[in-house]
C-alpha cells in the first residue's frame, strides 16, 4: 500500500477526468448539415413587430446574410440562461454580417428573455414546436447556422460560450 497509493490516486484521477471528457452530443453530426434549410413562418413577438412585421418567414431573409437561429426556453435552467449573454455579445459583434433570430416555445418565454437579457435581435415563437421537428432539434438551447446558399452549415446542441459562437460563425464568413 505504501508504494502503490500514488498509482491508485492516479488511476482514480484518470478515470474521473475521462468521465468528465466523455464525448457529448455536439460531436454527433446533424442529418441536415449541407441540406437546404427547411423554411418556417412564425409569429413575431410584439416588441419587434414595428420593425419586423407580424410574422417572420425564413425564406424571405435567406441568401443575403448567413442566419443564426437560436432556440430558447424559459424553463431550461441554467443552460439557456448561461448562454443568453454570450448570444447577446455575439450579436453585438456580428449584427452587420449575420442575421440573428431567437425561437421561443411560448410567447411567455420570449418575454422572460427580454426582461432578463434585453431586446436585441428579433424573437419569434413556435408554440407547436414545428421548427424543432423540421430541424431535428435535440433540445434547448440549440443553435443552428444557415449559410448564404440557404443550406444548414452548422449546429450546436448545448449552451455556446463566446469562443463557440466565434467558431461557429467563422464557418460562413
Amino acid at each position: 500500500m505504501r508504494r502503490f497509493w500514488p498509482l491508485i490516486v492516479l488511476a482514480l484521477g484518470g478515470l474521473f477526468w475521462w468521465g468528465m471528457q466523455r464525448p457529448d452530443m455536439n460531436a454527433l453530426p446533424s442529418v441536415l448539415i449541407g441540406r437546404p434549410a427547411p423554411d418556417f413562418t412564425l409569429p413575431v413577438m410584439f416588441p419587434y413587430r414595428a420593425s419586423w412585421g407580424q410574422s417572420f418567414q425564413l425564406s424571405k431573409h435567406l441568401g443575403k446574410k448567413p442566419v443564426i437561429v437560436n432556440i430558447w426556453a424559459s424553463w431550461c435552467k441554467p443552460a439557456c440562461y448561461d448562454e443568453a449573454p454570450h448570444l447577446q455579445a455575439a450579436w453585438q459583434e456580428y449584427q452587420d454580417r449575420v442575421l440573428f433570430i431567437v425561437i421561443d416555445a411560448q410567447e411567455q418565454d420570449g418575454l422572460t428573455f427580454i426582461r432578463l437579457f434585453g431586446l436585441a435581435f428579433p424573437q419569434v415563437f413556435d408554440p407547436l414546436g414545428t421548427v424543432g421537428v423540421d430541424y431535428g432539434m435535440y433540445g434547448v438551447p440549440e443553435t443552428l447556422l444557415i449559410n448564404r446558399e440557404d443550406r444548414v452549415a452548422g449546429r450546436h446542441a448545448d449552451p455556446l460560450d463566446p469562443a463557440g459562437f466565434d467558431k461557429l460563425i467563422q464557418k460562413v464568413l
Binding site: W5, P6, L12, G13
Partner: peptide, 20 residues
C-alpha cells in the same frame, strides 16, 4: 467539476504523501 477533482487529488496526495 475539474477544480473539485484537482482538490480531491490534492487532499489524497497531501494525506497519503505525509503518511507514507
Amino acid at each position: 467539476g475539474v477544480v473539485f477533482l484537482g482538490f480531491l487529488l490534492l487532499v489524497l496526495i497531501v494525506g497519503f504523501g505525509l503518511l507514507s
